Amino acid sequence: MSTAPGPRDRGSERDRDEEGRARNQRPRDGLGRPLPYGTDGVARQPEGVVRTPEESVAEAQALLDAGRPFHAHEVFEDAWKTGPAAERGLWKGLAQLAVGLTHSARGNAKGGARLLLRGATAVAEWSATSGLPRPYGIVVAELAAWAKELSAHVAENAENPAPIDAAFHAPRLRGSTPE
C-alpha cells in the first residue's frame, strides 16, 4: 500500500486545478473508481475539451470498445456542456447510457439498470422531438433498444449482482454495421 500523501495530509481541503477549482486528483481505475494516492491508475480524460460532434462520437466509441464507459461519459459530458443548447438532451442521454454501463460493470445492478433506461428514454425523446433519427450517424433506435435489453439483463441479476464486461456489452453508436 502506498504511503503517498492525500490532499488532507498536505494541508489542503481538496485537490485543486491550476485555476483553483476543486478537482479530485486521485488515480482512477478503468471504470473511474478512485484508487489510493500513489497508485498507478488509468489516464483520465481531460475535462472541458471542445470537440466536433463527429470527434465526440468517435472518441466515445473507442473508449466504449476499450471497456472504459466512465471515460466515454466524460466525452459526452463535454459535448453536452460545450455544444449547442438544442443538442444537450442528446449528449446528456448518451452520458447517462455510458454511466449506466459503468455502474453495471462495477456490479451496481440497480443503479446501472435505472441509468440505462433513463439514457434510453432521453435519447429517444430527443430524437423524436428533433426529428433526427440518426444525429451524427448515431442510430438512436438501436441504441435505445440496446440499453433496454442490457437494463433488463442487469436487472434480472439484481439479487446476486455481478459486474458485466463493459467492452463486451459496449454499444455500437453508429450501428452494428460500419457505414
Rank of each mutant, 00 (worst) to 15 (best):
N157T: 12
G112M: 02
A105S: 12
A128Q: 11
G107Q: 02
G112R: 00
A58G: 09
E142I: 08
R68Q: 13
L115D: 02
A95P: 08
R16A: 11
R51D: 07
F76V: 11
D15Q: 10
R10Y: 00
P5C: 09
G30K: 06
R33P: 02
E156T: 15
A124G: 03
G83P: 05
G119D: 08
A66M: 08
E18G: 13
G30A: 13
E74P: 05
G100M: 01
E19S: 12
A122L: 02
Q96F: 09
P69D: 00
V99R: 03
T177W: 10
P171V: 04
A95Y: 06
L116S: 00
E18L: 12
A162E: 14
Y37A: 14
V140F: 03
A122V: 01
G38K: 08
P36W: 11
P161N: 06
A155G: 08
L94F: 03
G111M: 00
L132V: 15
A95V: 12
L101C: 11
G83M: 07
K81I: 07
R33Y: 03
G48N: 10
L116R: 00
L63W: 06
L143C: 10
P46W: 02
D29C: 08
D9S: 10
S56W: 06
L64E: 00
Q25A: 15
A128D: 13
F168S: 15
L31W: 06
P171N: 03
S12G: 15
S56G: 14
T3K: 14
Q61H: 10
V123E: 04
E179N: 10
S127I: 03
L31N: 05
G137S: 04
E87G: 02
G83T: 08
R88P: 02
I164N: 01
R23A: 07
G6L: 06
E159K: 13
P34V: 11
R68L: 09
P161D: 07
A120R: 01
T82L: 10
K110F: 15
D17V: 01
P161K: 04
W126R: 00
N157E: 10
G30I: 09
R114E: 13
Q45I: 13
N24L: 11
G137E: 04
G119L: 08
M1P: 14
D78I: 09
R8Q: 14
A109Q: 05
K81W: 08
T82Q: 10
A79V: 12
L97V: 10
D65E: 13
K148A: 14
R26P: 06
G20L: 00
L132S: 15
R51P: 04
D78R: 04
G175V: 04
A43H: 13
G137N: 04
A58M: 07
V123R: 02
G41L: 05
R10P: 00
E77G: 02
K92H: 10
R28F: 04
G89I: 03
H71D: 15
N160T: 14
E87M: 05
A95L: 13
P46R: 08
F76P: 04
